[in-house]
Amino acid sequence: MDPLATDFPRTTRRGFLRLAAASASLGALAELRALPAAATSAVGETSGRFFDTTETEILTQIAERMVDSGQAAAPRLRATGAIATIDRTCRQLDPALTSLLPTALRLFEYGPFLFDWTFRRFTQLSDAEKDASLTGWMTSRFELRRLAFWALRNLSILGYYSQEESWPLIGYAGPLVRSPRPAT
């Protein structure tokens, strides 16, 4: 079952306005620009999930475009532990940094409607349309939109390029010591 079809709140103008207003708080996401330097640690592991099912699906579809390589040999993001790594990272960061991420994801989901007047959600777009939507965030004249873009881009890079499956694609030979990975 498509979680997006069931879990999303009913779309109303007021709902959009509330989401748009929430974006004013995205300044806190500025610090997430450096997120790749902040990843998971086996110490302090907490249980549960940071993102709910709906948010996870939006995040996954954003991350897929962020790290899309166009290479047939590239491991599919869904087939790796990338999203679990991002989720674990967010659980372990200061809530002041991460509490707006779910709102940001929903803004990305409704971005095509809010900013492009396309009556479809991000997750309903084709790959090319998703890239165009993301480009809109990256090049926006509004700093908060750009900051949100970089936060999610860097989370995606963290998730994907910390996975061993991605390393052959870029010619990275990987660590010389072996250690058990934290559970995802």
Binding site: A39, T40, S41, A42, L158, P175, L176, V177, S179
Partner: peptide
Amino acid sequence: FTQREDEMLPR
């Protein structure tokens, strides 16, 4: 020191 960015940078 596991030589992995996702583990060492936070530590």
